[in-house]
Amino acid sequence: MSKIELGYQPTKAEERLLEVLLDPSSKTMTVAEICQAADQSRQAYYNAMKKPEFVALYEAKSFELVKHSLGPVINAVVQKAKEGSHQHAKIVLAMAGMYSERHQVKSEVDVQGEVVHSGSLNIVLGNGNG
């Protein structure tokens, strides 16, 4: 439990809003629908969202929900990697700190010939003579 959760006690109205906001099905709801589901006014919603302590509590609780869902997601990614999926293997290796994408671009400019060489890409710059 974070200090934010221990240090801030939401009102009853805020608790009802939190309950609805933390339900995954609310992610597609409008503010009006969230307020209706929480049996709260739009003003109560906006007042709560103006409080940094409430927003921090909502974010902390949201993070906890996501964190608890990660196990099955990670297991599914690892399983796909074991089945031979290159993209899933990259994700697993990146999570383990054993892989990161690196891009190196080499460029050469020959102003006299007005040709730019960038890797295997050749771009001919026009000189206005059509």
Rank of each mutant, 00 (worst) to 15 (best):
P52A: 00
C35T: 03
Y58H: 13
S25L: 15
F54A: 04
N75G: 04
A89F: 02
A32K: 15
V20C: 01
E114M: 13
K12I: 08
V73Q: 09
V124W: 10
A38L: 02
H117R: 13
M29P: 02
N127W: 06
V116D: 01
R42H: 07
D23T: 09
Q40I: 01
H103Q: 08
A48N: 01
F63M: 10
H103T: 13
L18W: 00
S41R: 14
Y58C: 01
G128F: 04
V109H: 08
V115K: 10
L70A: 08
G119H: 07
I123Q: 05
K106E: 10
V111T: 11
V92P: 00
Q36L: 11
A96E: 13
E83V: 04
M49N: 03
A76D: 15
E33R: 06
T28R: 13
V73I: 14
L121H: 06
Q36Y: 05
A94W: 08
M1Q: 07
A81V: 03
A81F: 00
F54V: 04
I123N: 02
L18Y: 04
V31I: 15
A94V: 05
A32P: 00
V109M: 06
Q43A: 15
S69W: 03
M1E: 06
V20S: 00
L6E: 15
Y45N: 00
I4A: 04
L18E: 00
A44T: 05
Q87E: 15
M49A: 03
S118Q: 11
V111P: 04
S120C: 11
T30W: 05
K106G: 03
G128V: 03
K3M: 12
S25K: 15
P24E: 14
R42F: 06
V92N: 02
S100E: 13
G126M: 05
Q112I: 11
Q79A: 12
K12A: 10
G71V: 07
G126T: 10
N122H: 09
T28M: 08
T11S: 14
A13V: 04
L21D: 00
E15D: 15
S120G: 13
K106F: 07
G84E: 13
L21Q: 02
P10D: 03
V66W: 13
V78C: 03
E83T: 09
P10T: 04
D110H: 07
A96Y: 12
K61T: 02
E83P: 02
Y99D: 09
S107E: 09
P24L: 10
S107M: 11
Q104Y: 08
P10L: 04
V116I: 09
Q79G: 01
Q36N: 11
